[in-house]
Simulated scan of single mutants.
Amino acid sequence: MRQNNAFTCAKILGKAELPLLQRARSLQRLEQAALRLLPDDLAAHCSVMNLKNEILILGVPSPAWAARLRFAAPDFTKQLQCQLSLAVTGIEVRVIPETLDIQAVSKKPEGLSMHNATLLAQTAEDVDHPGLREALYRLAAKARES
């Protein structure tokens, strides 16, 4: 017979809450301290994502900033070891593109102008296909109604 070892999400998160918050706060403190060691223009585009197995993982918004950070990585690693006494053996740079909030523009479609309605009616006169001719006349009539 199968045992029910299921836990509620609240129970799992309740147990994990303290370590998660401590980890988040320590990474936040690390980010504040580490980014002071970088040049201002580079620090403005960089964020600390994680510290795992003595590798500092940093995120940047574009490949250009990633290249600049990789170029500065050896000196940055030495500064982290000397000034912050941080046991960092290397730096990993990840490109995390910024997300843009694109909102759809709600625009009422413009109606057909009278000139275009006249052109549709003239075109309908020269069309041999009865279904197409009728459709063109209907379109022209809708433009004249509005």
Rank of each mutant, 00 (worst) to 15 (best):
Gly131Tyr: 15
Glu98Ala: 07
Ala16Phe: 01
Ile57Gln: 06
Asn50Pro: 09
Asp101Ile: 05
Thr99Trp: 09
Lys78Thr: 15
Gly111Leu: 04
Met49Glu: 15
Leu120Ala: 08
Leu13Lys: 03
Arg36Leu: 01
Arg23Val: 00
Tyr137Cys: 00
Met114Cys: 06
Val127Leu: 13
Asn50Lys: 14
Leu42Gln: 04
Arg138Lys: 12
Leu51His: 13
Gly59Phe: 09
Val127Ile: 15
Ala44Phe: 02
Thr118Pro: 02
Ala44Asp: 06
Gln122Glu: 06
Ser26Ile: 02
Ala64Asp: 06
Leu38Thr: 03
Gln32Pro: 01
Val60His: 09
Ala141Lys: 14
Asn116Trp: 14
Leu100Ser: 10
Leu18Gly: 08
Arg70Leu: 03
Ala67Ser: 15
Asp101Asn: 07
Gln81Tyr: 05
Leu80Ala: 08
Gln3Trp: 10
Phe76Trp: 15
Ile102Arg: 15
Ala141Gln: 13
Leu35Glu: 12
Ala141Trp: 10
Ala24Phe: 04
Leu86Pro: 07
Pro74Ala: 11
Gln103Gly: 07
Gln81Glu: 10
Leu120Asp: 05
Thr77Tyr: 10
Glu92Met: 00
Leu136Ile: 07
Leu51Met: 12
Tyr137Thr: 08
Asp75Tyr: 14
Lys108Gly: 08
Pro19Ala: 03
Leu80Ile: 06
Leu86Val: 09
Val88Arg: 02
Glu31Cys: 07
Ala33Glu: 10
His115Val: 08
Leu56Gln: 05
Glu54Lys: 14
Thr77Val: 15
Ser62Tyr: 12
Ala10Phe: 04
